[in-house]
Amino acid sequence: MYPPELLYTKDHEWIRLDEDIGTIGITDHAQKELGDIVFVELPKRGDQVTAHEALGTVESVKAVSEIYSPVTGEITSVNSRINDRPELVNEDPHGEAWLVKVQLKDRRETDNLMTADQYEAYLEGSASASAAEASKG
Protein backbone atom coordinates (compact mmCIF):
# COMPACT_ATOMS: atom_id res chain seq x y z
CA MET A 1 0.00 0.00 0.00
CA TYR A 2 2.58 2.57 1.13
CA PRO A 3 5.54 2.71 -1.28
CA PRO A 4 8.78 1.72 0.49
CA GLU A 5 10.84 4.37 -1.36
CA LEU A 6 8.96 7.19 0.40
CA LEU A 7 9.39 8.62 3.92
CA TYR A 8 6.37 9.65 5.99
CA THR A 9 5.37 12.21 8.63
CA LYS A 10 2.96 11.92 11.55
CA ASP A 11 0.86 14.61 9.84
CA HIS A 12 0.41 12.29 6.85
CA GLU A 13 2.73 13.85 4.27
CA TRP A 14 5.28 11.84 2.27
CA ILE A 15 8.62 12.83 0.78
CA ARG A 16 10.72 11.12 -1.87
CA LEU A 17 14.42 11.94 -1.81
CA ASP A 18 16.51 12.26 -4.95
CA GLU A 19 19.93 13.62 -3.95
CA ASP A 20 19.03 16.91 -2.26
CA ILE A 21 15.67 17.33 -4.00
CA GLY A 22 12.63 16.18 -2.05
CA THR A 23 9.27 15.54 -3.74
CA ILE A 24 6.34 16.05 -1.32
CA GLY A 25 2.73 14.89 -1.29
CA ILE A 26 0.00 13.79 1.11
CA THR A 27 -0.62 10.13 1.94
CA ASP A 28 -3.41 7.84 0.88
CA HIS A 29 -4.63 7.87 4.49
CA ALA A 30 -4.81 11.70 4.39
CA GLN A 31 -6.80 11.82 1.14
CA LYS A 32 -9.24 9.20 2.46
CA GLU A 33 -9.79 11.16 5.66
CA LEU A 34 -10.44 14.34 3.69
CA GLY A 35 -12.74 12.86 1.05
CA ASP A 36 -13.41 14.62 -2.26
CA ILE A 37 -10.61 17.16 -2.73
CA VAL A 38 -11.70 20.30 -4.59
CA PHE A 39 -8.78 22.71 -4.23
CA VAL A 40 -5.13 22.65 -3.24
CA GLU A 41 -3.31 25.87 -2.40
CA LEU A 42 0.44 25.56 -2.99
CA PRO A 43 3.46 27.88 -2.68
CA LYS A 44 5.28 29.32 -5.69
CA ARG A 45 8.62 28.31 -7.12
CA GLY A 46 11.33 30.11 -5.19
CA ASP A 47 9.34 30.29 -1.94
CA GLN A 48 11.09 29.15 1.22
CA VAL A 49 9.45 26.45 3.34
CA THR A 50 10.31 25.38 6.88
CA ALA A 51 10.08 21.91 8.41
CA HIS A 52 6.88 21.40 10.44
CA GLU A 53 5.36 24.62 9.10
CA ALA A 54 2.44 24.86 6.68
CA LEU A 55 3.44 24.92 3.02
CA GLY A 56 -0.13 24.89 1.70
CA THR A 57 -3.68 23.71 2.28
CA VAL A 58 -5.91 20.97 0.94
CA GLU A 59 -9.63 21.70 0.70
CA SER A 60 -12.17 18.89 0.42
CA VAL A 61 -15.94 19.24 0.33
CA LYS A 62 -16.14 18.67 4.05
CA ALA A 63 -12.92 20.07 5.49
CA VAL A 64 -9.76 22.11 5.10
CA SER A 65 -6.39 20.74 6.15
CA GLU A 66 -2.88 22.22 6.28
CA ILE A 67 0.00 20.53 4.51
CA TYR A 68 3.08 20.62 6.74
CA SER A 69 6.49 20.60 5.11
CA PRO A 70 8.62 17.63 6.23
CA VAL A 71 11.79 19.62 5.45
CA THR A 72 13.30 23.12 5.20
CA GLY A 73 14.33 24.46 1.82
CA GLU A 74 13.35 26.26 -1.37
CA ILE A 75 10.51 25.26 -3.70
CA THR A 76 11.99 24.30 -7.07
CA SER A 77 8.87 22.97 -8.75
CA VAL A 78 5.07 22.94 -8.26
CA ASN A 79 2.76 20.35 -9.80
CA SER A 80 0.54 22.57 -11.94
CA ARG A 81 -1.77 19.68 -12.87
CA ILE A 82 -3.21 19.74 -9.35
CA ASN A 83 -4.63 23.19 -10.04
CA ASP A 84 -6.85 21.91 -12.86
CA ARG A 85 -7.45 18.46 -11.43
CA PRO A 86 -7.41 18.53 -7.60
CA GLU A 87 -9.19 15.14 -7.62
CA LEU A 88 -5.85 13.63 -8.73
CA VAL A 89 -4.90 13.79 -5.05
CA ASN A 90 -7.73 11.32 -4.32
CA GLU A 91 -6.87 9.14 -7.30
CA ASP A 92 -3.09 8.82 -7.09
CA PRO A 93 -1.77 10.50 -3.92
CA HIS A 94 1.66 8.82 -3.93
CA GLY A 95 2.29 9.22 -7.65
CA GLU A 96 0.86 11.69 -10.14
CA ALA A 97 -0.48 13.90 -7.39
CA TRP A 98 2.88 14.95 -5.98
CA LEU A 99 2.53 18.55 -4.85
CA VAL A 100 5.93 20.30 -4.74
CA LYS A 101 9.65 19.68 -5.05
CA VAL A 102 12.00 21.23 -2.51
CA GLN A 103 15.74 21.83 -2.58
CA LEU A 104 16.69 20.56 0.89
CA LYS A 105 18.74 22.77 3.16
CA ASP A 106 19.72 20.00 5.54
CA ARG A 107 19.19 16.37 4.64
CA ARG A 108 19.52 15.32 8.28
CA GLU A 109 16.01 16.67 8.80
CA THR A 110 14.71 13.51 7.15
CA ASP A 111 16.39 11.23 9.73
CA ASN A 112 13.34 11.31 12.01
CA LEU A 113 10.76 10.54 9.32
CA MET A 114 9.05 7.16 9.20
CA THR A 115 9.61 4.35 6.73
CA ALA A 116 6.57 2.80 5.03
CA ASP A 117 6.51 -0.03 7.61
CA GLN A 118 6.75 2.41 10.50
CA TYR A 119 4.02 4.61 9.01
CA GLU A 120 1.65 1.66 8.60
CA ALA A 121 2.30 0.64 12.20
CA TYR A 122 1.66 4.25 13.22
CA LEU A 123 -1.68 4.25 11.37
CA GLU A 124 -2.71 0.96 12.97
CA GLY A 125 -1.73 2.32 16.36
CA SER A 126 -3.88 5.44 15.96
CA ALA A 127 -6.77 3.37 14.59
CA SER A 128 -6.79 0.97 17.56
CA ALA A 129 -6.38 3.88 19.98
CA SER A 130 -9.47 5.58 18.55
CA ALA A 131 -11.35 2.26 18.48
CA ALA A 132 -10.52 1.79 22.15
CA GLU A 133 -11.75 5.32 22.76
CA ALA A 134 -15.01 4.66 20.91
CA SER A 135 -15.73 1.43 22.80
CA LYS A 136 -15.35 3.00 26.22
CA GLY A 137 -18.42 3.06 28.40
Binding site: A129, A132, E133, A134, S135, K136, G137
Partner: peptide, 10 residues
Protein backbone atom coordinates in the same frame (compact mmCIF):
# COMPACT_ATOMS: atom_id res chain seq x y z
CA UNK B 1 -4.14 7.45 24.93
CA UNK B 2 -7.77 7.11 25.75
CA UNK B 3 -8.71 8.20 29.22
CA UNK B 4 -11.30 6.51 31.39
CA UNK B 5 -13.07 9.71 32.34
CA UNK B 6 -15.33 11.94 30.29
CA UNK B 7 -15.69 9.55 27.40
CA UNK B 8 -19.32 8.73 26.76
CA UNK B 9 -20.05 5.72 24.56
CA UNK B 10 -21.47 6.90 21.28
Amino acid sequence: MATATGQQAL
